[in-house]
Amino acid sequence: MSEKAKGTNNRPNLLDLLTKRTVQARQSVSTWEEAADRVGKLLVGAGKVEQRYVDAMKQVLRDMGAYAVIAPGIVLLHARPEDGVIEPTFGMVTLATPVPFGHPENDPVDIVLAFGAVDKQAHITALQQLAKLLMDPAAVERIRTASDDQELVSVIHSLNSGSELTSGP
């Protein structure tokens, strides 16, 4: 399997994908399914994925287990390109009250991330930027405490600006 980089021109930045349309703060949900629906609805609303993609993300979690809870309080949901992705996309919903996703150690979750990939390459830059963001506990704390959508978007964008994360192709 070839993992050679093919340049970055067709790899959008996280900041171009995590926008006002796909970010929501302090949502109230009572189950993990509702949480997944909430972030899925944003991606569908932005025209980036079909509705069936949202169902596929939930099915993946049921089939594969809760390893998608990648860190304490943080879940990264996704399914396959062929499950109905139209364009590469990332979404984020923070929860007012954390809900369990079924992970033995990293539950409960209050940062719900989702992405849609069209292949194995186009989302890589954004995924890498997201990983760097999540690696920084102070950044995660600011995301967690942002009180409304606008603040959450601002926080995400301020965290990224000035770092190598915004360096485009």
């Binding site: 993992e3 993946v60 594969m64 390893y67 990648i70 996704h78 194995k120 989302h123 995924l127 990983a131």
Partner: peptide, 15 residues
């Protein structure tokens, strides 16, 4: 490794 090969596993590879 991950369930599908381009989320978690890709993140791990990058790290």
């Amino acid at each position: 490794l991950c369930g599908m090969g381009f989320g978690t596993s890709m993140m791990l590879k990058l790290f």
